[in-house]
Design a protein around this nucleic acid. Sequence first.
DNA 1: CATTTGTGATAT
DNA 2: ATATCACA
Length: 818
Amino acid sequence: MEFEHTNRVIVLVDMDCFYCQVEEKLNPFLVGKPIAVVQYNAWKGGGIIAVNYPARDKGVTRHMRGNEAKAKCPNIVLVRVPTQRDKADLTKYRDAGKEVAAVLQAYTPLLERASVDEAYMDITDAVNERLLNEHPITLEQLRNTHVVGCNTQDFLDSFKYEHHLESNLKLCMGGIITEEIRAAVFEKTGYKCSAGIAHNKVLAKLACGLHKPNQQTILPQDSVNSLYETLPLRKIRSLGGKFGCNLSEDLGITTMKELQQISENDLINRYDDKTGSWLYKIARGIDLEPVTVRLVSKSIGCCKKFPGRTALVCCEDVQYWVNELSNEITERLNRDLEENNRKAKHMVVGFVNEINRRDVSASRTHPLHSYDAEKIAADMLKVVNKHCLNSNGYYRIKYLGISAGKFEDCKKGYDISSYFKSGDKEANTQSVKPEYNLSYFFSKIEKHGAVNETSMDTKEALQEESNNLEESCNSNDSIYKNQNLLDDQDVKSDNLEAIYEADTVMIDFPETNDDNTKYETKIQTSFTDVLSLVNRDKDSESDSITDEILNNEDKDDNSKANTSSYFSHYFKNVESFSRNFDTSKYLDVSNNEVETSSPENDEIIGGETFGNSETFESTNNTNVLEHQKENINTSPILNNSTAYFNLQNYAATFGQVIDNDTKEKCKECNKQILKTDMTSHMDYHFALQIVRNEAHLYNNNSTSAISNPPKKTVEVKKTKRKRSEITSTKLTTFLKSNTQEVVNVPTETCPHCDKNIPNTEFASHLDYHVAKKLHLEINSLLKDNTKTAPVPKNINKTKQKPKQGKPPSVIAFFKQDT
DNA sequence: CATTTGTGATAT
DNA sequence: ATATCACA
């Protein structure tokens, strides 16, 4: 007996406290410790956006401030998300989410990414296929599976009887496949997740939340009623907000069971057709919403609040933030362009303007013709001025946002081979073909955990890729190590190790220094050990190992006093070290390509699935980046993963807060400066000194350049204003030699982008284009997975305007998880 | 002062 | 087109 509402098998995969896991992977010393991820440490210890399970056990929750968390759990480690452009930078979590999605994708094209850490999958086809030829199901296959309404063994036993429900059998098989999926996710990425298995999205989501870390739950249709018996309305997706409140107020009900008692007519009368009948159905566990294939977001945007006194008032404020926001969005749009081959055509500028004590929000759309930060900023400013600029010349802006959407595919780019004409290594690179990546994504991650022959292709291709890279850049030991990995290891058994080994390579120290070599070995061993503990959920032993490493670290006292010089110690003799891993180090100086180059590198090393997050992380460590800029002429390529790694260890022991950027007192001006900004801040002082000597630009108002204006935003600006505070032309040019195109350095014009690239970086710059091109090719091939769900149409859709105006006052309900 | 900052969807 | 909501 087949019913329309029970013939699909839908899975919701939800990463467990995802941001925490990402941080733990980045810094394994955190594993087993209670941690929370916070942003904006400045105020009361920062806002917590993720909490791992050890910390939850102590009562720490999302929405707490760091300080509260400390109070509840004194030994909690607070990991701060890095900031870029004075805003939280969530890039690494987005990237990690992509990694996971790539794994999931191997199991069904019907994958809907619901958020950075959640995805719906329609695995009906896989289930039906497996049911055709599957042998007896064992409890072993459902080791981490719960079944709502009965224990798992009973659930299995039920299939011995003639009258078992076929729909339940499907869910059962769905559960088995989901176990496999989750195992694969863990194996390939190191991340743990939970899942719900049911016949529709709403129930899958509901089920997922029932057993949380690292488990999964099947919700059979015939268990819905018993579950609904006491289930609060708000547990159902889309009833968690205002509408749900209204619903329970209007109808005087609180549980799903009570909702079930309401007639469809009543519901339709009270709300509208769609909503009413959706409510009626979902009260019976029926939800026909299809899983719509979506892997990329439909819009990209960023925003910033300026609450209370931080509201923007003068045009410098506004200009500054408009610039920051448009810089960020263009950066992300460019990266999106590379990854997804598409361009946004519209942008929406949003703002909240305070007009006599009342916040007025609005948004305006604007055509988007090019990804030019300046143009975007200008347009945005126009819009903002039009709506927010008061007659007195001031503003009162509480919020600014920009988002871009209406994406259109780009037409196929240039021929890939054109990229190799200018170079001398076309023969090799030609062989690196999209197939490699296709097999990489679709074959290597195969469904049953075994390895098929295409894995060999993958391996070879990767190796070849490695060769090419290696050749195109000067030989270097790091690459060799990476390559040996591929040579020696059986892909089947050690994917995980491969990932971690790769990490180890990334934290290499330069071999030029004996001490360092020793150090390196030490760390590598321990790092690997610790990582292996990660897999086993261990925490007890990790301490001794960490101690060992950290003691090691301890020996170097400089590390405490001055991270910058500590790091520079390692960078001194570095020649083109590890340029292969991160060409962005080169490109950093030519501003535009900076961030965009990261993904390509990732791709080169191992593709998205194996993308080494540490690469991104290290890119974020501006502290070191700044340092590199200083040395750009002498030793332009520096891998700062090492630095990051040490910094993290250090923080983990000596401070309870791991800040990707903490403040430090400037010796010159005594101001609290973000560590990451310290180098450039010192540059500022240096430059200022020069200018003062000239005694031209800054009369005797020595601080005017830094603390220019106005009212209430003073403090904020002190720390926030960075680049823009340097206003004098002379200063700017002075600093430009560090941050912009390098002047007075021999350059060559890039045939691909027409940019002038310093000779020292030229080879690597070309590599960047190669990588970029590859990426484009691959993505255009990956694109056509656009099936639609084998399900009727979207009869339902929840949202409804409430009939009554005011919602019940704020009810703080806390979701279980991220 | 102050749950950030994205995302997507829907109603009008 | 834009305001608002839900959710993570």
